[in-house]
Design a protein around this nucleic acid. Sequence first.
RNA 1: GGGCGGAUAGCUCAGUUGGGAGAGCGCUGCCCUUACAAGGCAGAGGUCACAGGUUCGAUCCCUGUUCCGCCUACCA
Length: 919
Amino acid sequence: MNQMTTPQLDKTYDPKAVEARWYEVWSQKGYFHASLTHPGQPYSIVIPPPNVTGSLHVGHALNHSLQDILVRWRRMQGRNVLWLPGTDHAGIATQNVVEKQLVTEGASRESLGRERFIERVWQWKATSGNTIISQQKQLGESCDWDRLRFTMDEGLSKAVIEVFVRLYEDGLIYRGERLINWCPRCLTALSDIEVEHEDVKGKLYTIRYPLADNPTQYLLVATTRPETMLGDTAVAVHPEDPRYNRFIGQRVNLPLTNRTIPIVDDAILVDREFGSGAVKITPAHDFNDFDAGERHGLHRIKIMDIHATLAADMLQYDARVDKNVLPFLAGLPVAKARLKVEQLLSEMELLEKVEHHKMALGKCYRCKTVVEPYLSIQWFVKIKPLAEPAIKAVEDGRIRIIPESWTNNYMGWMRDIKDWCISRQIWWGHQIPVWYCAQCTPGGFLKSKHDERPLIGLDATPIIAKLKPEKCPKCGDTNLVQDPDVLDTWFSSALWPFSTLGWPEQTPELKTYYPTSTLVTGLDILFFWVARMIMMGLKFTGDVPFRDVYIHALVRDAEGQKMSKSKGNVIDPLHVMEQFGTDALRFTLASMASPGRDIKLAEERIEGYRNFANKIWNGARFTHMYLAGTKELCPPAEQPFPNRWIMSRLNQTIQTVTTELDAYRFDRAANALYQFFWHEYCDWYLELIKPVLQDPAHPHGAITRQALQDTFEIWLRLLHPFMPFITEEIWQTLPHTGDTIVTQPYPIPLSAWHDASAENTFGAFEQSIGLIRTARVLLNYPPGQEVRVFVTHEDPATSAILVTLEQDLAHLGRARISPVPTSQWPTSNVLRLVTGGVTVGLSVEGGVDLQKALDRLVKQIAETDKESQRLDGKLKSTDFVSKAPPEVITDHQDRLRALSRDRAMLTSSEQQLRAMLGA
RNA sequence: GGGCGGAUAGCUCAGUUGGGAGAGCGCUGCCCUUACAAGGCAGAGGUCACAGGUUCGAUCCCUGUUCCGCCUACCA
């Protein structure tokens, strides 16, 4: 027993003074370090790695708080806990950050060259990449920082290479020329899910395409992107469309060019109901048209460069744009080209009409630039063979998605999944482990006219290798060029649960902590990340990467808007922690984490839980005044009533919190903790035991002090995962064993503490006190004034219990109590209030206004009557009594009986009151 | 276009085998009562979005409607 001296605590809790100090101690003592020799059953979580350029936003705060609650809880339960932290290298975002820095120095990525640029990024990472890590520590996160990982670390990079090579060898990675989503600002390919769609009001242009054989006749073609017509290589109509099918096989003159293009039939592409029923086909600039082009063996004519501007040479030589309009169009960016084409067509009277049209516009998720479907050579993962086992793992329950409702979402996406474009035309990231031999490539490597990168054509044979090969295996030449592209950041994140544990080595960590127990994440990266981890985990470890996936809500502002810097509605968690304390923020987020609903975070809520922290603090100050001396042992059943009651309630709270945490109901667990402490422990228990504590000679003094500090200490442990700082601070000042609350056992329910009779007794007691207090207010008695109170219960047994509680009733009711039957009460000058069998009488002093009391009685009688009628009506229904379950019927009968007893007491009370008023 | 979620007190939200509608904040009144005014006590406030259906009985289950949000999609 480590008996501390009673400290003097300030009246209000000051989180700042406490938080940094304890985090320092926890770190130094290594409480968060996972040990392979720990005897407990492993419990492991890998953190969703935040972007290394990032700083802690409120979404992280939620995500991390929930993980820390789970981890601290399991650690206290004695599990062998690993919470593995880290960051990802965020290829595009990080490169953007460093490039911006270079611009201010008058330099650029290109001027530095690839090697020096990458060095520069590492430098940046060394100085700025730990921002979020230190912020995570401020949040109190109990990660094993000794195992901090970064997706570009040597070990993780090794895993990336290993996976790439093995996927290639298994035929699951291929290189091909496809249409991909291209960001003309980041100058790289994006995967499908890196494109955000936004509804915009655009225009639908209807253009006349004159028939080649008879230019006075024309086909009407509708499009939202008229500028792409320069790259058209066909027009499609529906084969069964009587308006057009006779034209199939003929040709049209493509306006603004010197080309004619065929009219083809295509039942897949053409919707006869839409637009004019004829569709232009631009295979190099539209995803549907690309497929249609494949079906009809059409040319693909590119008209744009990597910046999404119309390229003069492409227009001139490939698209054969008419030389009269060429100067107007060459070099224009897409948006301007659209206007110009509209104008030109209009002047040539080839523009039939322009209508308003709403459409979805794809934007880059990093920089919000409009993305272009762009024809280029890229690397892809063939995803279907990986998706199938990943679907199965969720179907057969090896992976559980919580809340379950997201399972459908996952399944739907997985079943309809498309090949994953994994190459990115940037420098920061894992460079693709593929080399090419110039000697063996017939066309050699070209330099693009529009890009400084070497263009490696599809005729080049890739040499896939974990390390750079010495020489070409075919010709022996040593002049090999590595593929300039890097892999999608999500490619390395997909390996996170096992690459961080040492894979491809079979490390002890991997054996102990894989599969991980739980993944905690937001819905926004279910597809980006979760699905891909499942696919990769199954493929490369043969097992799922985690058992449970807990998906939490998105945090929005108080108006329900998504937080964004541009809207200026972001709540900065660091500022909140500064203002209200970390524990308050954590508790707020936990208490609002109801499944399937977004969190609207308002500052008032956080303030409310700041007040809760202060309440806890003051509860501790109170407890400190009455710490026990020597240890007092007393079996629960022999404890005085307040102790028996609070122990039973605490026991129930332990049960609830544990059950709810098991079900990932952080909100309910938090509410149970709050409700217990504030509204049972402080409001009732502390008040009940004050007379005992304050009387040095009281026979229950010693065991009550003991119960007070024991229950407080247990509750602190119960709360600790939610509010780690304040619980440690207070726990240290109470008698305790051990060095830190962090590693103390989590409370478990004890059946000996459960006491139904104490809880029933409390029910009658609480009702009595409630009536006394209400009566006081009705009669305008000052709170301090002691009054004469009669109290009884219609059930004799309960009445007898109330007799035993006379002291407690007197104390909390501030009254002289007469616990006698109503027959012994005065018939006048007493206000009688009734509820649930309890009747309380307050003696009425002369001169008080009784009208308020009368109003209340009248209202209560009316309510009683209404409810009685409702119950009576049901009980008189033959359908009800014949079909409802017996226990429901007896319950209704009991309630009706209780109401009518109350009602009799109420009316007699009303009559007395009227008599008093009349007098 | 498809899918999913939501609509309960002024606000934010609980309410899971269908049987008496709850919490927090806010509001009103009274109190600086020796842990706490970041507090205590008492109180007001809801046809559980709307319309049908199932049932003895529906906030809860089913159908439809309206509104809001999210995800997803190639209607040029």
